[in-house]
Amino acid sequence: MKKIGLLFNGVWSHYVFATAPKYKDVMKLVYIHDLSDDELEGLEGLMIPFQSNQDIITEKKEVIYSFLKKGKKVFVEGDTTSEWLDAEWVDRPTNNYWWVENPNNPPISDTDFSHPIYEGLSPRHSCWHTHGSYLSAPKGAKIIQTKPDGEIITWETHEYGGTLMATTLDPIVEIGVQQITHLDNYVEKLVKWMCGEEVTGNFEVPKENYGIAV
């Protein structure tokens, strides 16, 4: 049964993730231009991936906050805008190669490993690269990950009814891209945290999923 909506921009990495046999039974693609209360009915969580259309999200932000008000979970990754989130995101250079050139100096220096998503993860599995930083989070938010300079990478708040978590990591896009091979560790825990379902096994990419008609 599908329990988590993935806000879907028609971007291929989102599609790869949500249609992979490992995740397809719990993930529902919610096309961004169709986002509505009805589309989220029956779901426990909503993922808003990197490479989403922030203008359309802003137009439809009431749907997201209404979903949160019902006690649901929303996970936001990558860039955002303060037009729909009570936080200030800023762009920063993305370092994809620190693990080759400077492995003892990862872009994230502090992680709260007591959070259910991070509990049991190794530092390497909880940090690959970031897309920008938060200079501020909503009042009362719990800070979960920070950079060496103190900028915020991951935060969580219960201010809106349910749980809203935001990170500038990009596990959804990157697991779809499949260039980083350890992301199942993070995403399995993310899925479990969002809907209680355990997903296991290898991440496969069936060829028949490509070349589809709409």
Partner: peptide, 14 residues
């Protein structure tokens, strides 16, 4: 991933 380009198709693979 949709089939909108005539004669050519991108395939994801890991």
């Amino acid at each position: 991933f949709t089939n909108w380009i005539p004669g050519n198709q991108w395939i994801m693979s890991n």
